[in-house]
Computed example of a mutant assay.
Amino acid sequence: MPIDAAKAVAAAPRSGEITWDSKDIQLYHLGIGAGTPATDPDELRYTLESRLHVLPSFATVAGGGKPGVISGLSLPGIEVDLARVLHGGQSLTVHRPLPAQGTATTTGRIAAVYDKGKAAVLVMRTEAADADGPLWTNDAQIFVRGEGGWGGDRGPSTRLEPPVGPPDRVVERTVREDQALLYRLSGDWNPLHADPEFAKVAGFERPILHGLCTYGMTLKAVVDTRLDGDVTRVRGYVTRFAGVVYPGETLRIRMWRHGDGEIRVAVSAVERNEAPVLADTVVRHT
């Protein structure tokens, strides 16, 4: 079996130093669709260095996304075909607001390996801290098709009960045709998002948008419309990637307030009969 679950979980964490500055943040924000209209004061918070606010989902690409999914697949106990890999979910805990420039130490490890029968799920955990203490914790759930079935722990269910009643807010966001090409400049170079031939080998009609790009676009929509544009109010953000997005499509983002400090979200692709894109999505906030 290409995945040795016990060996992967027992492997020593990998640590390294990352740095970022305002240019990295601006590039990320542009990659998730910020800057339209370009002179809108609400958009300039994401694009102009003199008034820059950092969307917390930047943590998924800070330092070029290191340690990232591809590097995580080279950890001891893991040997898989990249064409069989899909990003299944993402969980972010924000310990304090992200600075517009900084240096941090990241520690990455395989926190768990689950057996889903037809697939294995790797939980890749990355923790970041600077001189003032913890900054964020990222958990990426990575599906590796065809690698399950060894009788291991199936892991916890991430499915939530559907929100009750109509959404409190619905917005639509257009994915530009070149958005995957721009987003990948923040560090995710998987050819699935750019190379048509590779996408076909992976089973897709054409390159797909990064799941984490949809993740960032959705958080920005929630912050802009439900949190008064205040990025510092975000405390946590979790989602399950329920389907793919193709560049050029329109995202329909539905939001429900769910008690104090929680917003439930569902995202679909308008042009494909509301095909689910993000599900079981929660933004925790102050």
Results as ranks from 00 to 15, higher is better:
Glu127Arg: 06
Thr137Arg: 10
Asp168Leu: 02
Gly77Thr: 11
Thr232Met: 01
Gly203Pro: 06
Ala10Tyr: 13
Thr250Asp: 08
Val222Pro: 05
Gly102Ser: 13
Arg257Trp: 02
Thr126Trp: 01
Met124Asn: 03
Glu49Pro: 09
Gly117Gln: 03
Pro162Ile: 12
Leu92Trp: 05
Pro166Glu: 11
Thr105Ser: 02
Glu43Asp: 09
His210Ser: 06
Arg233Pro: 01
Leu52Ala: 10
Gly259Tyr: 09
Gly259Arg: 11
Gly133Asn: 08
Lys7Glu: 14
Leu160Pro: 02
Ser22Thr: 15
Thr103Gln: 09
Ser74Ile: 07
Ser71Glu: 15
Glu49Leu: 07
Gly236Glu: 06
Tyr46Gln: 03
Ala221Val: 06
His258Thr: 12
Arg109Gly: 03
Leu135Asn: 05
Ala12Trp: 04
Gly259Ser: 10
Tyr46Trp: 14
Tyr215Glu: 05
Ala266Tyr: 00
Leu278Lys: 06
Asn138Lys: 05
Asp228His: 13
Leu44Ser: 08
Thr232Ala: 15
Ala83Cys: 05
Thr47Trp: 03
Gly68Cys: 11
Val85Ile: 13
Val164Met: 02
Gly187His: 05
Val270His: 05
Thr47Val: 15
Arg254Phe: 00
Tyr28Gly: 08
Val283Asp: 04
Leu135Thr: 08
Asp230Gln: 12
Arg252Glu: 14
Asp260Val: 11
Pro191Glu: 09
Val223Glu: 03
Pro191Arg: 12
Tyr237Ala: 01
Val144Lys: 00
Thr107Tyr: 01
Phe58Tyr: 13
Glu172Tyr: 09
Thr239Arg: 01
Val222Trp: 01
Leu160Trp: 05
Asp260Arg: 15
Ala266Met: 08
Val80Arg: 04
Arg226Glu: 14
Glu197Ser: 12
Glu17Met: 13
Arg284Ser: 13
Leu44Tyr: 05
Pro191Ala: 07
Gly88Ala: 15
Ala5Glu: 07
Val121Met: 03
Gln101Gly: 08
Gly211Tyr: 01
Ala275Pro: 01
Glu177Gly: 00
Met217Gly: 02
Gly203Thr: 10
Asp224Arg: 09
Asp115Val: 11
